[in-house]
């Protein structure tokens, strides 16, 4: 087993904001004796327990599965969405990747369509509305034909899967210098447009989802590639090309 290094001492600069109307500010906390085997969120848990006992408000942050799949957690750590370790959600980031006596800045996702609810918690319902616009295949329960009635090429199924692994965390938006939601939207469009089952609604889906994305107030894509670099699931950039292709076709 790993060398049980002694605890680390850290300085955290955390964004605190009481509610959507509050202006918010950075607050500095000192945490001591942090085990390198802790996850980043466990480190915040420990700080929060201390804050509760001191009668303070604990730092609000979203989290749930803590195994990197639900997409609920997410914070910008030292200027990088989910922190600098690649292909990792915040809950899967461990303290051993930080230096002793480090200063760590923790901020919420910053985007107008993701308003801050409290502290590090943001409202990502814009993503749900993009899915509502067309991110589905219309097939009421019980109406499906036998699963083997339509074979799907393995390469298509695999590529669709790659796009479908998106966990909807919003890191792509947080990292994009334009605040664009293109990678999220494109991942769903790609997933469904690669499958034969997704063809009937392919054009209308792309058009409706892109228009909803724009209506939510996300920025435009300038192909900087920042999104895919921070994506915990490594959703590739070519999904965006496919989205553009489907969208242009649908708009003709």
């Amino acid at each position: 087993m790993s060398e049980r290094a002694k605890g680390m001492n850290l300085t955290l600069k955390v964004w605190r904001q009481n509610g959507p109307e509050d202006k918010g500010r950075m607050v500095t906390y000192r945490v001591e004796d942090v085990s390198p085997d802790m996850s980043f969120l466990e480190m915040l848990d420990v700080l929060n327990e201390r804050l509760i006992l001191e009668g303070d408000d604990p730092i609000a942050f979203d989290h749930d599965c803590r195994e990197g799949i639900c997409g609920m957690c997410g914070m910008v750590i030292n200027g990088v969405a989910h922190g600098e370790q690649v292909a990792t959600t915040t809950c899967q980031l461990h303290m051993r990747h930080f230096e002793d006596n480090a200063v760590i800045t923790i901020e919420p996702w910053r985007a107008a369509p993701f308003p801050v609810v409290k502290d590090l918690v943001v409202d990502r319902s814009a993503f749900d509305r993009i899915i509502q616009a067309g991110g589905f295949i219309s097939v009421p329960a019980g109406s499906a034909p036998d699963a083997h009635s339509v074979p799907v090429k393995k390469v298509d199924a695999d590529a669709a899967f790659d796009a479908a692994t998106c966990i909807g965390c919003g890191a792509c938006v947080a990292a994009c210098p334009n605040g664009s939601a293109s990678l999220f939207t494109a991942a769903k469009i790609t997933h469904l447009s690669l499958l034969p089952q997704g063809q009937p609604e392919r054009a209308s889906r792309a058009k409706a989802m892109v228009e909803q994305m724009d209506a939510e107030g996300f920025g435009g894509c300038t192909n900087t590639g920042e999104c895919t670099a921070v994506c915990p699931k490594g959703i590739p950039l070519d999904t965006i090309a496919r989205m553009n292709r489907d969208y242009l076709k649908a708009s003709k």
Partner: peptide, 12 residues
């Protein structure tokens, strides 16, 4: 417009 509040840490 999409990012009215900037990051405090220099975005890397």
């Amino acid at each position: 417009k999409a990012r009215p509040v900037k990051y405090a840490a220099r975005r890397k």
